[in-house]
Amino acid sequence: MNRLLKIIFVLLIVRPLVLIILGLNIKGREKLPLEGPAVIAANHNSHLDTMALFSLYPLSKVHKLRPVAAADYFLANPLMAWFSLNVIGIIPINRSGTNRKELLFDDCYKALDNGDILILFPEGTRGEPEKISKLKKGIYYLVKERPNTAVIPVVTYGLGRALPRGEALLVPFTCDVAIGDALPPVSTSGELVELLGNSYGQLLKSCLTYHESDQ
């Protein structure tokens, strides 16, 4: 990853896009981890989710943010692969399930040991717009090996209306970002998924643009 390119990208593209074209209502900003090792466990509705999280960080810290992203999608063509790896700074992950867990998370462990902040989407996909899909258990296996890693639940809302999966037209909407308390240590993957799900539920209710009728 090229740190300077990432700062320029955040300053000239991400911030004007997220803060002026879209606009954010932010809840719990002080809970955002500024230092790693940490995992931001966010719901996923749009490519804008990552952009919204980038916009919340000071430029001096953006290089710490490493979105964990599907290799099959982001490395599909050379241009996108270059951009994803060098500007966004993704950690590519193999979704096909053929790799063993240790190998699967190898780059994630390296990043955490380096004090980075991983952005993970436990739904595994953007899915249907503005709906939270079933959460996957990857985060549990990731933090089991690195118990000093804080897991911070983050819910974004509205970004799936602004730019949903499969649409090219970006429509401006003010969106919500709600940051929750770090999850307590857990002993099973089921426990982690349950805690995370509960936290998402609460954070979603605190979103200004969320309506019960949306679900």
Binding site: E130, P172, C175, H211
Partner: peptide, 24 residues
């Protein structure tokens, strides 16, 4: 800014994105 704020707080359907774009 005001239009964006208004259509973000009222419940509108996912299918209304294009019409909302025309409003902009």
């Amino acid at each position: 800014l005001a239009l964006k704020e208004f259509i973000s707080i009222v419940p509108i359907r996912q299918a209304d994105r294009n019409a909302a774009f025309w409003a902009y």
